[in-house]
Design a protein around this nucleic acid. Structure first.
Length: 860
RNA sequence: GGGCGCAUAGCUCAGUUGGUUAGAGCACCUGGUUUACAUCCAGGGUGUCGGGGGUUCGAGUCCCUCUGUGCCCACCA
């Protein structure tokens, strides 16, 4: 595109009553029309500032937390644009994954069935609020995906509207969606590369499993919840006939899955029993008593039952002690129905038969009943509350089920990869710095490789097939991969090279991998996706590695880490140089705002009520990494600031423009410019350190001083047409508009349009004036003026009241400093006469009001 | 149990390498304006800078320690 497309526009007239109301929409349209935020892709990497933006999950609505963090990043983007960087600032929607599936299921009342064939032109009978109790209609995976796409498109339009209204300066032409072909292709290509290099592998292993979603879950997606439970004491009969061994368990329903009892090697109570066996109650299965250091003598009876699998320690014991596998919990969270071959007695099989088909919860109730009547269960059942692992989106506790899953090596099993990824963390600049600890902590303590496969439907399919042997058994060890050029592919509908479609599912034929990738496996590639790694290497070279990744601190372990893993494997580099971590929004009671608490405020209503700039002001006031209370008071202040900017600008511009030959030469004006220069330096330094909040605070502070003190002082000279004053006012306004532009894009652009060409957002960030001024002059003048104002306030007279005499007693240095400002002070404070008295102490100002001005009620 | 934050005015928070008498906004009170300002301005602060100890000529700032509070991780028989 052309580098600069200036549109000839008539200068907008300065309104009599400037207003913030309704300024957003025309400006949004103008920015889009003019391509104000378009990325200039002719720029080389060193001229580019690239931002890796979080694609929000499209599953309903945006909340104030989005407004908060996206605004913070936007201020940085706007600053970078103004210092001359070509800003690559794309946005995407994260619309694949479980959240969307669930919404689609409810919205259309359908259920995805991968075994069904695609039905072109399928229309679901229900839309929106399907009648309650309606049977979910099975549809094929491609049809289901079509419905997902249809629904997310509606949500995305709403998101886009809000983001534009907020003034986020994305280049919308690079918009991506995680369910779009481009993302699928990128994910699949990255996966195939991982596979080819051995970084991705398929393994059958015990896996954390959500029984409702019926999918495996990764370590990073699990959370603990405090749940009620109960200890059950269960007696196991020793096979040597010398009595019982009693264990304590919260999961008696897993008794049939018991493979051993375990105690600590040094536990004297159980040392004699190591190597002996006991028989499980009810099922009468002989299991050994073994020793392992993870057994805790302090817990329960000091000896535990090992089941396959009740928790992660069971997995460790099972693996390290080479114990057999006796699975009893199925994918649906119910006890498996088929006969368990290790239960050999008729009574045992009978007992198991009573449990088979029951949910874990039902099975627990039943087995307690059975154990009680058999006498093996101590009647002292002690209820407790204990943390239980859940999938973060799940409703029931995770079970551990042995399944075949895809993993990506992330240092959870290999020390060398772990160290390499920790080194990447040290290489990355975190804003704020201390967030690095969360990264390092997580990587250091990883429990296993990254499980990326999900047994779901709406996501990126694994681009592999498996040949079937003569018996129809899949050859999982030798996945068939497509050519990268053929991506994206869906193995459930497409045929692998060397096969025909009718061989699908037949012995000697093939099957497609039925799984999809976890959403993080796609979003871990946002720099590659946005930068078009797969289809535009020229663009990619100009934007990668990106400059910053913006995100919230709670997803360091997921999004940030996963992105580093993918980039490390593929490019042996970081995906971005820095990461800015935003805080959370807390409600006024300091609790984290969340949908489930019902305390979420809808952002659009805030934008309408206070104006976008005012809401942005609130967001930009919070520093990175700091959780912030939701505070409409701050928005009111932001609105006042924006309003002040309009009015101060109107006032400054009400004076006639001054010719080019006029110099700023009055010491008072030079003093103001010196202060302005200092703030420009501070704001610039702050922005370079991603400290937008400080840049705003310094600018705002100077601006109010500029309005209240400087303008008031030089107003009179302005009315007289003094060149230096008029030039200074416009000079300062020009700078203030640009300093505020990252924060208040609408108000600054509105004012800019009154007297400047182009967009303030493509203007150059202010730099120091190069003029020599003494800031102390205005400090001294401000001090004297404050004394005069204070005297009038004390006397309860108008600020316009005349002053007969101002006596300033101070050091000669102070008197010399204030001297150039006395004329301005005179007009601003209506002072008739000064008397300067040299002393060697701190300045003292004595104000003598004109007698006629003293109100009759005043004392004396 | 491990790690990382935070604690400053009634509220929300600044306070950059240690340096005069610790600041801002909000709220509150008083007064003044109402031809730049759907308002604006001026004036109004007895703060144990969480407690204690230390370093220093000097500590809100650096060190130690304790307390409170929040988050992350681990533990889950």
């Amino acid at each position: 595109m052309p580098a600069a497309r200036y549109r000839v526009r008539l200068m907008a007239a300065i309104p009599d009553k400037p207003s913030l109301d309704g300024i957003e929409t025309p400006l949004i349209e103008r920015w889009e029309r003019d391509g104000t935020y378009r990325f200039d892709r002719s720029a080389t990497r060193d001229q580019v500032f690239a931002i890796d933006t979080p694609p929000p999950t499209v599953s309903g609505s945006l909340h104030v937390g989005h407004v908060f963090s996206y605004t913070q990043t936007d201020t940085v983007a706007r600053y970078q644009r103004m210092i001359g960087k070509k800003v690559f600032y794309p946005i995407g929607w994260d619309d694949n994954g479980l959240a969307t599936e669930r919404r689609v299921q409810n919205f259309y009342s359908v259920r995805c069935d991968s075994s069904l064939a695609y039905e072109p032109g399928y229309q679901p009978p229900f839309r929106g609020d399907a009648p309650k109790g309606t049977q979910e209609i099975p549809v094929s995976r491609p049809n289901f995906v079509e419905l997902c796409k249809e629904l997310v498109a509606q949500d995305e339009a709403v998101f886009e509207d809000l983001f534009r209204r907020l003034g986020l300066s994305f280049d919308w032409s690079y918009l991506y969606t995680t369910i779009g072909d481009h993302c699928i292709r990128t994910s699949q290509q990255a996966f195939l590369r991982n596979l080819a290099r051995g970084e991705a592998y398929l393994q059958e292993a015990p896996t954390q499993w959500d029984v409702d979603y019926r999918t495996a879950v990764a370590q990073a997606e699990m959370e603990d919840r405090e749940m009620p439970g109960a200890y059950h004491l269960i007696a196991f009969a020793r096979t040597d006939g010398l009595g019982d061994v009693t264990i304590d368990t919260t999961r008696p329903e897993l008794l049939a899955a018991c493979v051993a009892l375990v105690a600590h090697p040094t536990d004297e109570r159980y040392q004699p029993l190591f190597g002996t066996t006991v028989r499980t109650p009810l099922f009468d299965v002989e299991v050994p008593i073994v020793a392992h250091h993870l057994a805790d003598p302090e817990k329960g009876t000091g000896i535990a039952m090992i089941c396959t699998f009740g928790d992660t320690t069971d997995i460790t014991w099972w693996r390290e002690l080479n114990l057999p596998t006796r699975p009893i919990v199925g994918w649906d969270g119910r006890l498996l129905s088929a006969e368990r071959e290790w239960i050999t007695t008729a009574a045992g099989q009978g007992a198991y038969g009573e449990l088979a088909g029951k949910s874990v919860k039902q099975a627990q109730a039943k087995i307690v009943e059975l154990l009680t009547s058999s006498g093996a269960l101590h009647d002292d059942i002690r209820p407790i509350k204990h943390p239980v692992k859940f999938y973060e989106r799940g409703d029931r506790p995770l079970e551990i089920v042995t399944t075949r899953q895809w993993y990506i090596r992330n240092g959870g099993r290999a020390a060398d990869i772990n160290e390499a990824l920790r080194a990447r963390g040290r290489e990355l600049t975190f804003y704020p710095n201390h967030m690095w600890h969360r990264y390092d902590n997580w990587v250091e303590n990883l429990a296993g490789d990254w499980l990326i496969s999900r047994q779901r439907f709406f996501g990126v399919p694994f681009p592999v097939w498996y040949a079937l042997d003569a018996e129809g058994v899949p050859l999982h060890d030798a996945p068939i991969v497509p050519d990268e050029a053929d991506l994206p592919i869906d193995p459930s509908t497409e045929t692998p090279p060397g096969f025909t479609a009718d061989q699908r599912g037949r012995p000697g034929g093939f099957i497609g991998d039925p799984d999809i990738m976890d959403t993080w496996a796609t979003s871990s590639l946002t720099p590659e996706i946005a930068g078009h790694w797969v289809d535009d290497p020229d663009l990619f070279a100009r934007v990668f590695p990106m400059d910053i990744r913006a995100q919230a601190h709670d997803i360091i372990r997921t999004w940030l880490f996963a992105t580093v893993v993918r980039s490390h494997h593929e490019f042996a580099s970081l995906p971005f140089k820095g990461a800015t971590l935003s805080g959370w929004i807390l409600d006024p009671d300091r609790k984290k705002m969340s949908k489930s608490k019902g305390n979420v405020v809808t952002p659009m209503h805030l934008l309408e009520q206070y104006g976008s700039d005012a809401v942005r002001y609130w967001a930009a006031n919070a520093r990175l990494g700091t959780d912030t209370a939701f505070d409409e008071g701050q928005m009111k202040i932001g609105r006042k600031l924006s309003n002040k900017l309009l009015n101060a600008a109107k006032f400054v511009l009400s004076f006639p423009p001054i010719g080019g030959g006029v110099a700023i030469d009055d010491p008072v004006d030079l003093s103001m410019i010196a202060k302005l220069d200092a703030v420009i330096v501070e704001a610039t330094t702050a922005f370079e350190a991603m400290d937008y909040a400080r840049a705003l605070e310094r600018t705002e502070s100077l601006f109010w001083w500029f309005c209240d003190d400087y303008i008031e002082l030089v107003k009179a000279r302005g009315y007289e047409g003094d060149g230096s004053a008029l030039k200074s006012l416009r000079y300062a306004l020009h700078a203030f508009l640009r300093l505020f532009a990252p924060f208040l894009p609408f108000a600054t652009e509105e004012v800019w349009g009154w007297w400047q060409q182009g967009s303030v957002h493509n203007a150059t960030w202010p730099t120091v004036s190069g003029l020599e001024g003494d800031p102390a002059i205005l400090d001294a003048a401000g001090f004297v003026l404050a004394q005069i104002r204070g005297a009038k306030t004390t006397a309860k007279v108008s600020q316009k009241a005349a002053v007969a005499l101002v006596e300033i007693a101070a050091t000669q240095a102070f008197l010399d400093t204030v001297d150039p400002a006395t004329d301005d002070i005179s007009t601003a404070g209506t002072v008739a006469r000064y008397r300067l008295i040299e002393t060697d102490s701190d300045p003292v100002v004595n104000v003598v009001l004109e007698p006629t001005q003293v109100s009759s009620g005043a004392s004396g």
